[in-house]
Amino acid sequence: MNDSMMVYHTRDKYADTSMPDPEQDTFSKTVLGFWLYLLTDCLLFATLFATYAVMHHETFGGPGSRELFSLPIAFSETMLLLLSSVTCGLAVLSAVRNENKKIILWLIVTFFLGASFIATELTEFSDLIREGHGWDKSAFLSSFFTLVGTHGLHVTIGLFWMCVMIAQISIKGVTVPTFRRLVVFSLFWHFLDLVWIFIFTFVYLMGVI
């Protein structure tokens, strides 16, 4: 059993102790702190969702969601992101088994899935703008681009973060800090997946049907 597994399997044992032993306690503190950060991010998205809910009929004479959105594209984006969540999970599992090469492999796969998602989204955006439905045309389009774009921005940050993780793991291997960061990263990535499910449901599915 390596160090990281020790941390992973014994974290419950350390969860309730308040002894400030930095090696052991950092894991549980970081994970709790990150969950709280995700909560703040959740509220950020909630605000954008609420704004979209208020604004999505304000098309200012332009076409609405039914005319503009394409379900097949949104569905393919959903699949890409869901699949990337699976591969991200596999990367963490490889880390628990301490298989460095597999971690990097799965992270690279996750990266390409995430990058394809971003590429699809950018294509969708640029098509809309080229057809004259840019964000400056109506409140509806402003709130659409902002909500979906903010999610896209988060995914892009995730892609950069993934590059840093790949570099760290190939240089340092699985250590206590890199394992912790990998776990936290996977939380972030799954969270983005969850937000996307809401976007897919509320913006695309309910917008088209």
């Binding site: 304000e58 098309t59 200012f60 109506s138 902002t146």
Partner: peptide, 8 residues
């Protein structure tokens, strides 16, 4: 056009 007078 979130909070503008025009544009919805």
């Amino acid at each position: 056009h979130f909070f503008t007078s025009g544009g919805g």
